[in-house]
């Protein structure tokens, strides 16, 4: 099963915007709360571990916990983005706790498993919930994980893409196992973040 569990994680207190106030960094160095949501077993924690461990910048400070991780990436315009990644429990019995986590998150990554239509439905549930209760300008990414398991695919690429497009989200398929598209996911998110205006 490989790196095979997922956890939805959401909630941050920066009111949906990476801000230089409240310790959000400055205009060139953003600190961003990213919440990770999705059913158990879609590989959420593996996506994050891949991302955090796969960055080999020795100057960046990395926090590796079991459920909270942070990682900084440098962009081409010489700005940096520090992602503080909040994992959430994906089991149904904890679903009601999710708002505690996604409150104030600037980014939500909603993951599903391309071999599991149920996990895709669950992802759509989270999208709807965030549209209702998340920060209005939250950046959302829909991630179809386990893309290496083509022969077991049950959710078509087009389905994910269409759904994401209709809901104004960024869409990508990843494989935490092969590291495919993992960095691309986070780089794309970083580009889409609203920048605080430099005054």
């Amino acid at each position: 099963m490989g790196c095979g569990s997922s956890f939805p994680d959401r909630d941050s207190r920066q009111l949906g915007r990476p801000s230089p106030e409240n310790g959000g960094g400055d205009a060139k160095n953003l600190r961003v709360k990213l919440v990770l949501l999705g059913d158990s077993g879609v590989g959420k924690s593996c996506i994050v571990l891949r991302f955090v461990r796969g960055q080999f910048d020795p100057t960046s400070k990395v926090t590796v916990g079991a459920s909270f991780l942070s990682q900084t990436i440098a962009l081409q315009d010489s700005t940096t983005v520090k992602f503080e990644i909040w994992d959430t429990a994906g089991q149904e019995r904890y679903a009601a706790l999710a708002p505690l986590y996604y409150r104030g998150a600037a980014v939500a990554v909603i993951a599903y498993d391309i071999t599991s239509p149920e996990s895709f439905s669950k992802a759509q549930y989270w999208v709807k919930e965030l549209q209702k209760h998340g920060s209005p300008d939250i950046v959302m990414a829909l991630v179809g994980n386990k893309a290496d398991l083509q022969e077991k695919r049950e959710v078509a690429v087009e389905d994910g893409m269409d759904y994401a497009e209709k809901n104004g989200m960024f869409f990508i398929e990843t494989s935490a196992k092969t590291a495919d598209n993992i960095n691309e996911l986070f780089e794309e998110i970083a580009k889409r973040l609203p920048r605080p205006s430099v005054t």
């Binding site: 939805p8 994680d9 459920s67 994992d87 706790l97």
Partner: peptide, 20 residues
Amino acid sequence: LLLNAAMSEYVPAGADDFIP
């Protein structure tokens, strides 16, 4: 405890394991 378990064959499950 979770990180140690992950070092054995156990697949890390992040918050899915942490919260319970």
